[in-house]
Design a protein around this nucleic acid. Structure first.
Lengths: 237, 237
DNA sequence: GATACTTCGCGTACATCGTTCGCAAACTAG
DNA sequence: CTAGTTTGCGAACGATGTACGCGAAGTATC
């Protein structure tokens, strides 16, 4: 009644009176994470999560107001897997470390990129990470808006790269490749045709020796130095 | 039977024998676009689209194999709103023009960013745009993989910025702001607290005079020049 | 220990969703 | 006119997110 449009984390998890709750948000979130990692985000249905916990579907609504809130909990939960070491003094290196970790997390949880991009939510672990980034950037002279922008961009780029790697699943890639070859063969797209004819051997992917992981750190560095000031190493590239 | 795992665009739209189809893919796609622009992507249900066309839901499956295919058609359809002018000789300017147009399109269709990021599909308009980008970059010395990467990054960044602007709807923003203030007030996040106390006037958003649209061209320029070579204008910034 | 009060677990139900099936209607080819 | 082929679509199936209501399980007060 009093918790209508507030975030999940501002609502008390359990009441202090009456019958005590048998489960916790963390427990439910963990079950949902398991399912998502195993069978994808669409498989995270209320009934399925409940079944995983050996309970009824309606019970989950004692812990969570909607399914979307459960997804919020999931996103913030993996955000908690970020180590937050003391700043080294080199803000770029510290930010890059966050970026690398982000990418590793998104690889481990392939449903994460799409979630954080379409539904960016701030939970306890999210604000902790944000505070960490601001701490790392504390000695930096830029104004706060710029720092926030840089942090947001870094997260976005991480999600973008991760999503680009898995690229919507092999089924989609196959359909895209099929149409690409057709378009190239039609004669109306000479540059594409040339690209595919002299391209890498396999017909499966138009550029399957193209490895975005090698480019990730480079791109991230350039963006961060671009947004936050001159590069510390001018001998770059 | 023969069109099982191929893209929509490789299947003939209509058969040349038998009863002629009453509607077209374009017509159905247009109806779906209308609904999405008006009530969001979730409102694009088969029944709703069918109702918009004054037909039965099951009829749509004569034109499209699944709902996802309809979404693919929608994404490629707005891709068709890209003008593809002759290259001016200045590849950066030409690419930036594409980027600006992308952003305008995503603003006009708020459901687009999420769709293209989580489900990047290649249709006729997509390959036309890709061919255009390759044409624009034809005189550029970089290898094809780099050019493809730059193009992909540009599209991704466009979606990222657009998504950042609308940021998941005002409901989410309000929830995030509420929790942010709580976190700042808890005393465990001094930098956040400082940010919010000396921040912009309104309590609605933590940084509501922060305007990503002013930064868009700048960031895009930096990324493109970073990926594709030295900036043509060294007096930049 | 009995009573009042509060919260939890969850069976049941409902609306809506994507999709399949099967048949009548509508058209083309011969 | 007949045979062949494709379309339109009502009806139905299974799965989904969620609301309701009630019995069970606790705590607080006496």
């Amino acid at each position: 009644m009093a918790a209508d449009q507030s975030s999940v984390w501002l609502r008390a998890e359990r009441a202090e009176m009456g019958r005590p709750a048998r489960r916790s948000r963390a427990e439910i979130t963990a079950a949902a994470l398991d399912i998502a990692d195993r069978d994808g985000l669409d498989a995270v249905s209320m009934r399925r999560v409940a079944a995983e916990l050996g309970t009824g579907a309606a019970s989950l609504y004692r812990y969570v107001e909607t399914r979307e809130e459960l997804l919020d909990l999931m996103a913030d939960a993996v955000g908690g897997e970020h180590p937050l070491p003391a700043p080294t003094g080199d803000w770029l290196a510290d930010l890059l470390a966050i970026g690398e970790r982000s990418r590793a997390l998104m690889r481990a949880h392939p449903w994460l990129p799409g979630l954080v991009i379409t539904h960016p939510v701030l939970g306890p672990n999210g604000v902790a990470l944000l505070e960490h980034a601001l701490t790392v950037l504390a000695p930096h002279p830029a104004d706060v808006a710029t720092k926030l922008e840089a942090f947001a961009m870094m997260n976005g780029i991480s999600a973008l790269f991760a999503q680009h790697e898995l690229s919507g699943g092999s089924a989609l890639q196959q359909r895209n490749a099929a149409f690409l070859h057709h378009a190239a063969a039609s004669g109306e797209h000479p540059r594409l045709a040339q690209l595919l004819s002299q391209g890498p051997a396999g017909p499966a992917s138009p550029a399957d020796d193209y490895r975005p992981e090698d480019r990730y750190a480079t791109v991230l560095t350039r963006i961060l130095t671009g947004l936050l000031g001159p590069a510390p190493d001018p001998a770059d590239r």
